[in-house]
């Protein structure tokens, strides 16, 4: 189950979050801490029960933000725009797609197995294709403002469904 959870986030200049999306969508409402069937350590994100147990969403976000530092380092040693597994934490892994100005980054947190990471690059490219006309070219969208576009949100959800549902 945990293999199939995804967290997609667009990070703008100054590391500001412009857009984020949990997939499957139910993940954004579900509270995994209190859910009774989340009793096994794996489902709790690999934390021991006597520790403070963060929600699964918090873990995913944490992995994404940690990945940003690793992206900044990798940026200088590679010319690739799309980097897989830039950062791993327990069973989570983060991949990134850099837009040409490199200050806006698409980060996707996914399970670290190859199976879970299979469609990551295709998903990122597809999102970027929509990002350009819906967000970048929209005259009412500021470079550092959160993305409000309903159109973009709809398409991003559908793309996540198409590429990430396995």
């Amino acid at each position: 189950m945990i293999e199939r959870l995804y967290y997609f986030v667009i990070v703008g200049p100054n590391d500001r979050v412009l857009y984020d999306l949990f997939y499957p969508a139910s993940l954004s409402e579900l509270d995994w801490r209190t859910s009774s069937d989340a009793s096994s350590p794996t489902e709790r994100g690999g934390f021991e029960s006597h520790h403070f147990v963060p929600s699964i969403q918090a873990v995913l976000q944490f992995v994404a933000y940690s990945a940003l530092d690793h992206i900044d380092e990798k940026l200088w040693i590679t010319s690739a725009r799309s980097l897989k597994h830039v950062f791993r934490f327990r069973e989570w892994s983060a991949s990134v797609h850099l837009t040409p100005n490199a200050s806006t980054r698409f980060v996707l947190v996914h399970g670290s197995s190859e199976d879970a990471a299979r469609n990551v690059r295709a998903f990122m490219n597809a999102v970027y294709e929509v990002y350009v006309p819906c967000v970048l070219c929209n005259p009412f969208q500021d470079a550092e403002a959160p993305i409000q576009s309903q159109r973009f949100h709809e398409v991003a959800k559908n793309l996540a469904k198409r590429y990430l549902s396995g």
Binding site: C134, C137, N138, P139, F140, Q148, Q150, R151
Partner: peptide
């Protein structure tokens, strides 16, 4: 209006 999307308040 090819790329435009009006913000909600407008």
């Amino acid at each position: 209006a090819e790329f435009a999307e009006l913000p909600e308040p407008m």
